[in-house]
Structure formats: C-alpha cells, structure tokens
Design a protein around this nucleic acid. Structure first.
Lengths: 203, 203
DNA sequence: AACAAAATAGACCGATCGGTCTACCTTAAG
DNA sequence: CTTAAGGTAGACCGATCGGTCTATTTTGTT
C-alpha cells in the first residue's frame, strides 16, 4: 500500500472510526475477556459496519493488538504523570500507591471502571509466552518497571533503583489482584505499608 | 500420575468419568481460558461422549464450577501441607515462598505446569462480583488466607496473624503475576525477601 | 464537477458454539 | 433372567463465531 500524499506531521492521529473501534473493543474485552467477546458484538456496540473494521484491521487478532497498544499508552502515560512530581524515593513510593488507590476507587476517569489489570488478564488468555499478545503484556510491565526505575535513579544508584522498582512492581500486581478478585479496595494502602517497611529495612 | 494397581473391577468406580472430565477440563481451561475452550474439545480430549457429560453436569457452567472446586481442593491441600511442618513465624514465611518457588519451577507434579493462578484468571473472565465463578475465586483466596492466619496464630496474636497472612497473600499474588506474565521465575524469592523486611520492621 | 477513499448495511460462508436427542451397548444388582 | 443405570457414537438444533463480499452512499481533494 503506497500513500501518495506526503504526511509531514505525526502519524499517531488515527482515523476516528479506528479509534472508536479500539475504545469500544477495549471496554468489552476488559469486562468480558477477549475470547468472551465477538466481533459482531463490538460492531453493534460501536455502531460501525463490519467492512469498516476489516478495512482497518486484517483480523480480530490485529484489533486485539491495537487494543493492547492503546491501553498500554493510556495506562503508562497516566502512571508516569502520577509519579513525575515526586521529589524523593519515599515520595515516589507514596505517589505510586496513591495512584493505585485512586484507580481502585474509580477516581481515574481515563482508566475506566476498575476491573484489574488488562494485561494480566490477556496474558492469562494467551499463555504461550511466544504469542504476540502475551509478549505485549510482558512488555507493558517491563516498560512500566523501566520507567519507575529511571525515575528512582534520580536519588538511588541504578542497581538499587532497579531492585526497588521491581519490588514496587510486584507489590502493585499483588494489590491489583487483591483489589479485583476479593474486592479489597484497601489493597493499595496495604501494599504501601509493605513498601514502607522495605524502605526502612533498606537503611 | 495414574495408578496402575491391579483392581480391574474397581476401576469402574462411579465417579471415574466425572473425575476424568473435570481433570481434562481443568487442563484445557488452565491453558486456553474458560471462554477459549469448547465443550466438544473437552470431550474429544477426554475421550468421553457428550451425553455422558450432560448426564453428570447440567451445563458448561456447572462443569466450570466443579473444575474450580477441584482445583481449589488440590491447591489448598498442597499449600497447607507445605506450611504444616513450619515451627515458627519466620519458618512459615520461608515455607510459604519455598512452596511458590517449587510451583514456579514446575517441581510440583499435582499442580500441573505453572501458568499462573487459575482463580485469578477465572475471576478475570467473569468480572461480575456476584457471578458464582467470581465468588468461588474470591472464596478460594479468602480460604487460603484463613488457613495461613490460623497457622500463624500458633505464635502470634490473632490480629497480627491475620495482618501478616493478608500481606503474605498479597505478596503471593504479586509473585504469581510476575512469574507468569514476565516469566520471572525468581519472583518467589523476591517476594520472600520483601516478606523478610516485613518481619524485621515489625519487631 | 470529478474522482477516489472511506464508510454504510447486510447477505452470505463454513465452522463451531452449547445443548438435545435417538438408538444401542455394557454392567451390576435383585 | 430382568431391569435400570451408566456409557457409547453421533446426528441434529438454532445461534453465533470470524471473515468475505456486493452494492451503495458519504466525504474530502483537486
């Protein structure tokens, strides 16, 4: 496919219908899982014709990957913004779990109603580590950890920053699961306390 | 492993086919998710007729619930056994994460090849907290936490025991997710170190 | 006005979904 | 032997699956 018209500026502005499909698909996938939602359901919900979907995406699999990329971007940007203003290691930890707490209590509009981690869920539906979906999920978490690690690098040497970032990542996953499966909305605060003891004993 | 004891007539014990269906269904659900596996696939894999399935279970939903109960029992019994011999709070924590470490490294035959927490995955497929499947998943984790808390009660007062059990539960979930999504098999040891700092700072 | 890309509705395809049903075979207890 | 329950194979049901296709209309550029 050759695009004859020169596009000087950013390409990241996707066609409107494509965005609408991705957002609708995400909402449905997030609620009922990927395998649990059919193409026709997405089309009906979005009010978009089937031909249009297959004009933008070669298959359901490609739509799924686009949805993962979309959620990755939204979530990453949100969380990065939340810890950006932190002014110390301790402050970053506070911000990290305060953000999760807001998410669990549905105080973050752009993340939709909390239903756990979409990437966790998707990786569970595609257990083969070589599958593109699974790899995308792993990448998301690696990317988050890297972002946090880099941020902590302002006050810690890189080895300690990476280790703490890994630990905060593990605590984040644990909190998300507890919040989602058992409805324990206080899980973010619980994880924050655990992280506190981590900082104390690291002295 | 299957028992090859010479009991030709006793092999036809009543629940044999039912058990076989449940075990086959679990293996498939665990690998490809519940919504991703059809009835016919289960029947073909198990070598059992469709009529037999619907003789034992009223619907796929009921089979799913039976599979959850089966996994719940296997997992609970295994983990309880693993911490039963612990002789102190610290020892229990060691046993707890050593068990997870064995699981992640596929050293526990009865749990099948590690693919994360089946209840976590199932709760993600049925996000409605009122759905029987979701409730069963929540119950599983509550039951595990209760078991651990009771065990820790040997050396701690009940309030501290419950709090520590909750924290160990959160760390367990976090480790499972890291091990499954990112393939980080060292997550159990990582979580164990976090738990260590928890015990130290609790003094 | 002309034209191409984008989008529309919806019929249609073979395959599979969960589930029902008929008909026959095997087994154990009375 | 009789009988009833558990099991077999597999045809069959309407619905939905992911995906293709025809025919038509909308839209933006030139």
């Amino acid at each position: 496919m050759t695009d004859s018209s020169p596009t000087p500026s950013a390409v990241n502005a996707l066609p409107a219908k494509q965005q609408q499909l991705i957002q609708t698909a995400f909402a449905l996938f997030y609620r009922d899982s990927i395998h649990g939602v059919g193409i026709n359901q997405i089309l009906q919900e979005a009010g978009i014709a089937k031909k249009t979907l297959y004009h933008h995406f070669a298959s359901k699999d490609e739509l799924v990957l686009a949805v993962l990329a979309y959620r990755d971007e939204v979530f990453f940007n949100w969380l990065e913004q939340r810890i950006r203003s932190a002014s110390s290691t301790e402050d970053t930890v506070q911000h990290w779990f305060a953000a999760l707490d807001d998410w669990f209590h549905n105080r973050v509009a752009e993340l939709q109603e909390f239903r756990g981690c979409f990437f966790m869920h998707s990786a569970a539906e595609f257990t083969d580590p070589a599958h593109p979906v699974h790899q995308h999920c792993a990448q998301h978490k690696t990317r988050l950890s890297g972002m946090l690690s880099k941020h902590l690098g302002q006050w810690l040497d890189s080895r300690k920053a990476k280790k703490l970032a890994d630990d905060l990542g593990l605590l984040k996953e644990g909190a998300i699961v507890c919040a989602q499966v058992q409805g324990n909305k206080k899980a973010a605060r619980q994880a924050a306390l655990i992280a506190q003891s981590l900082l104390i004993s690291a002295h």
